[in-house]
């Protein structure tokens, strides 16, 4: 794992990708810092950080697009997979390398609050800023895990970058959808039906058996309808509830207010873990097809 990690980290700074990421990140954060803190004379640093989260949408795909897709294109995955390394080790090494590049960049931006502390009357809220940074780091790491996963799906970097961007955008607007989705039971039923249809497709594509698919359809439909008849309240607002499970940004609000609580930390770590795990499964699966 450490061998892969070291090589990957080096590779970031042999190719222009690492520098592009670091450069753009610092440029954009610098502009925001200058405008919202320096020029307006405001010491509210965490507010600035949270208005910056949108840059993940554009920069994470750059950071993650070639992680696994390039290995497949150059066939170097044959070297890694036929070596004594485990697939978990390979994927983790790559994920941690991308996270390390992100962390290095964040450490550079730590100069801003230091700079701020010279000018802010009454000092800066150091702990609050640290909390904000932890949240920012965890949020970014979760997005990187998503990018890692999509990079394992195709051997084309550009395609990987575009799907990652689309997926991150979807996560981004999840909150808006969740707030505006109707809460009546009918809508809830329709939403659950869509999820059930997704599950049916999953069963079909993983088993390719008509029987299993039909059985799943029948069970799903029966469960949905029964629930609708027996307990209508179950469906009330369920769409919004489920959507917010996947809302990464909502968990970030605590951090930006300077609250460091355990549950969003655990949430981000498990979210990243889930996508790293999916990536490992994806690569293992490829050997069988």
């Amino acid at each position: 794992m450490f061998a892969v990690f070291r090589r990957e980290l080096k590779a970031y700074f042999i190719s222009p990708i690492g520098f592009t990421f670091v450069g753009f990140f610092i440029l954009i954060t610098g502009v925001f810092f200058a405008l919202s803190n320096l020029l307006s004379g405001s010491p509210a640093y965490t507010g600035m950080l949270s208005s910056l989260t949108f840059i993940f949408l554009f920069l994470v795909p750059i950071l993650t697009m070639r992680l696994l897709s390039d290995e497949m294109r150059q066939k170097t995955d044959q070297l890694l997979i036929t070596s004594p390394l485990s697939i978990t080790g390979i994927v983790l090494g790559k994920y941690l390398a991308a996270v390390a590049v992100f962390l290095i960049t964040l450490l550079i931006t730590a100069l801003y609050p230091v700079l701020l502390s010279f000018f802010a009357i009454g000092g800066i809220a150091a702990w609050e800023i640290l909390g904000g940074y932890i949240g920012f780091f965890l949020l970014g790491s979760s997005f990187i895990a998503v990018g890692l996963f999509f990079s394992s799906l195709t051997d084309n970097q550009l395609v990987a970058a575009m799907i990652t961007f689309a997926a991150l955008l979807l996560i981004w607007i999840l909150d808006i959808i969740a707030q505006n989705i109707p809460t009546d039971p009918g809508m809830g039923l329709a939403f659950m039906a869509v999820i059930a249809a997704g599950l049916v497709l999953l069963v079909f594509f993983s088993t390719r058996s008509t029987l299993a698919t039909v059985v799943t359809i029948v069970i799903m439909a029966a469960a949905l309808v029964l629930l609708f008849i027996l307990s209508r309240s179950f469906y009330e607002g369920i769409a919004a509830k489920i959507l917010t499970w996947f809302s990464l940004l909502k968990r970030y609000n605590d951090f930006s207010m300077g609250i460091l609580s355990l549950s969003p930390i655990v949430y981000y770590i498990s979210f990243s873990g889930a996508f790293v795990f999916l990536t490992i499964r994806m690569i293992e699966r490829r050997r069988w097809v």
Binding site: R7, I14, Q74, K75, Q78, L79, L80, S83, P84, L85
Partner: peptide
Amino acid sequence: YMPELPPLYVDMTVGDYLSFVCDIKG
């Protein structure tokens, strides 16, 4: 194993590459 297409990281030098192979083969 030497596959049909040599699995080379083209951005590395030969020495670095072989040393990386030493790493992953333990």
